[in-house]
């Protein structure tokens, strides 16, 4: 498989604090790739650098052989931020329609796409409410729907399942698998270990270092542990950079 996303020598510094300390990462097309790490480990920074919302202090990012930031690539990316980033005065439908027109979805298709995205996150019945009346979990789902609207070929989701109940979480994972099966590359950040198990490959992040990379099975085998959590502890101690 060819490398769809390539991060080379990425370093990032906020004022004096070094958030990312030299990260090299390649993600093949079609993968469901997980960035696993505790809060403050640099997951969000890394995701923002990937799509060009942050200029790294050093290093380059390219997606599909195009250096980021690139407006052309952004059209192919669906992004779900950690904060919900929605307009609370507007209804669910108005929010979706707004982003649909930003992504240039033709008017004729817009309603169908809005309904399609809302259906995935199970919000069809709530589209006419303003977001002020949404619960936290509903806003999370709406934010995910926005990311899915334009059928992107790369989906970047920053902590997508926080605050979502287990039933819906399971159904969202099922949908993510379905979206992946249709050819979409998915990058997901999480700090939940059992979610990490569902990814094809994982990068473990800690204190701005990538301490390990590999499939969940490989990571467990290499660290001689039963769980991802155990693997995380093992690699955290040894601070190794590359596995598998």
């Amino acid at each position: 498989m060819n490398d769809f996303i390539k991060l080379e020598g990425i370093q990032h510094q906020f004022e004096k604090e070094q958030v990312l300390k030299s990260v090299d990462l390649a993600i093949p097309q079609g993968q469901l790739f997980g960035l696993l790490g505790p809060s403050g480990s640099g997951k969000t920074t890394m995701v923002k650098i990937m799509i060009g919302l942050l200029n790294p202090t050093k290093g380059t990012v390219s997606i599909d052989n195009t250096e980021m930031p690139s407006l052309k690539q952004l059209q192919q990316i669906g992004y779900m931020a950690q904060n919900d980033a929605l307009y609370s005065e507007l209804t669910g439908r108005q929010n979706l329609e707004f982003f649909a027109s930003i992504y240039g979805i033709p008017k004729k298709e817009r309603t169908a796409r809005v309904n399609e995205a809302a259906k995935i996150v199970n919000l069809n019945d709530h589209l006419n409410k303003t977001l002020e009346h949404y619960s936290g979990g509903m806003k999370r789902r709406m934010s995910l729907a926005v990311a899915l609207l334009h059928r992107p070929s790369l989906l970047i989701l920053d902590e997508p399942t926080v605050g979502i109940d287990p039933v819906l979480r399971a159904s969202i994972w099922k949908d993510l698998k379905k979206i992946q099966a249709a050819g979409t590359t998915i990058i997901i950040t999480t700090h939940v270990m059992d979610e990490a198990e569902k990814c094809d490959e994982l990068a473990l992040l800690r204190d701005g270092y990538m301490i390990a990379k590999g499939s969940p099975a490989e990571l467990k085998e290499k660290s001689n542990t039963e769980t991802i959590e155990g693997a995380f502890l093992y690699f955290g101690k040894s601070q190794q950079v590359e596995v598998g």
Partner: peptide, 14 residues
């Protein structure tokens, strides 16, 4: 502050 500006900059909007 609510992140929508950043969200807009993650779209192809100029």
């Amino acid at each position: 502050t609510q992140g929508t500006l950043e969200r807009l900059l993650a779209t192809p909007l100029k």
